[in-house]
Design a protein around this nucleic acid. Structure first.
Ligand SMILES: [Mn+2]
Ligand SMILES: [Mn+2]
Ligand SMILES: [Mn+2]
Ligand SMILES: [Mn+2]
Lengths: 223, 223
DNA sequence: TACTATTTTTAGCCTAATCTAAAAAATATT
DNA sequence: AATATTTTTTAGATTAGGCTAAAAATAGTA
């Protein structure tokens, strides 16, 4: 069959992410939710993807789906493209980290390996995107980093914000208001029993209160 | 109806270019040739484009098609995007002018006005693309330039290459070999009766022979 | 002008990607 | 274990954007 379509690519990415998160086969419903389509449509797509000369997914009726090696390769490359474009938009075109996801969602589907190679080079072969997510290299290898959620940081232990778990615009815009960015230094002064909130020290200067929900979505690296 | 599709955009661009060139309504066959489809498919597309709430083309059965104001606006914006992306690829990612058309053909369909504004700014609001074609501004205004074909340059009159009429990779690659680029200084030393070839002086240094076909596809500006 | 050749449109099909509604399978709950 | 609920698949329909073949309109020529 023909070159892989945008819809096919987006399904592969959804399946990749689901399997990474859960460690299990991805369910039809879960995929449909991400794709904003219906389960029946996902079933149809899965049948197409598994019916290629080189199958991209492995499907067992009623038992979910996982990517084949070929599917993983494609999904990883798509993620690479997505994150490189996001980096370009923030680093070169001065977009804010909350604006780039949607645009990169389109740019990632441009098919030109040379373009991505050159873009990577132009950006200085970045290892992480504007949300702190690792950018796989051309061979599909991700850089791993010792990071924990802010909820798991010991009291009074100094750390630096290195990423976000939730990268929705609303969360990112809220972080903008809090002046919390990648690279911000944080330290938990006190975990308040009463409402589960956290008094933190930001950049060694400013005391601030973060709800537990915020802390659950911030990755930090201890110093 | 929904946001304009890639296929619709490409048809608008084809119609725009045909009408600009010929000054007449575009024929179904001519459009099909550019789109690499069949006349019947073009007729179907034209019916769709003229049937929008705001029609994008004006169609008279058997008498060809032309763009409405709304269609012209869209086509011009598409050309703007195409040429800005080409400029980006050459200026920032070090692509050669013969490699960029195909990639820009895809990038031009990314829908994000802010992206194009920012890209334009990042590139320094260029007025011409790597092939010397004018880049319309955000309002759709093209910069005009007094240029003539090298065939029409007077003998011994000094001029600078400012653009190409044919921007096919094969012609551009041939120009690469001849070391003829935008900005090259040229002067016709002699038009040879015998075979219609042209002895030229390149950059005040080097004598070279160009066929008439090459001269017919080079735009120059006199000094 | 009448006939021929070319161009355009119409009619009917096809595939990709979606949908809804119903059937079937798997899972959960008495 | 039997029944109820949820999930997945199947069946059938739709829309965009292509195709081929045939019909209709226009243009060219004798
Ligand atoms: Mn996408
Ligand atoms: Mn990201
Ligand atoms: Mn295009
Ligand atoms: Mn160009």
């Amino acid at each position: 069959m023909n070159p892989i379509s945008k819809a096919e690519e987006n399904h592969l990415k959804a399946i990749f992410n689901l399997c990474e998160e859960t460690g299990k086969r991805a369910s039809t419903n879960a995929i449909a939710k991400i794709m904003q389509t219906k389960a029946a449509s996902v079933t149809a797509m899965i049948i197409r993807l598994s019916g290629k000369e080189i199958p991209l997914v492995n499907h067992q009726k009623h038992k979910g789906v996982r990517l084949t090696e070929a599917g993983k390769k494609l999904a990883t490359n798509l993620i690479r493209k997505h994150r490189l474009w996001e980096t370009f938009l923030v680093e070169k075109l001065n977009f804010s980290w909350d604006e780039v996801h949607e645009i990169a969602e389109e740019l990632e589907h441009i098919k030109a390996e040379k373009l991505i190679d050159r873009l990577d080079e132009f950006l200085g072969r970045p290892k992480f995107d504007p949300h702190g997510d690792p950018i796989p290299d051309a061979d599909g290898n991700f850089t791993f980093r010792k990071q924990i959620l802010l909820t798991d940081l010991a009291e009074n232990q100094a750390a630096v914000v290195v990423g976000v778990l939730d990268d929705s615009p609303s969360f990112l815009q809220y972080l903008n208001k809090l002046k919390l960015v990648l690279g911000s230094k944080v330290q938990i002064l006190e975990r308040v029993e009463y409402d589960g909130s956290n008094r933190i020290l930001l950049n060694d200067q400013q005391e601030q209160v973060l709800t537990n929900k915020v802390c659950q979505n911030l990755y930090v690296k201890t110093l």
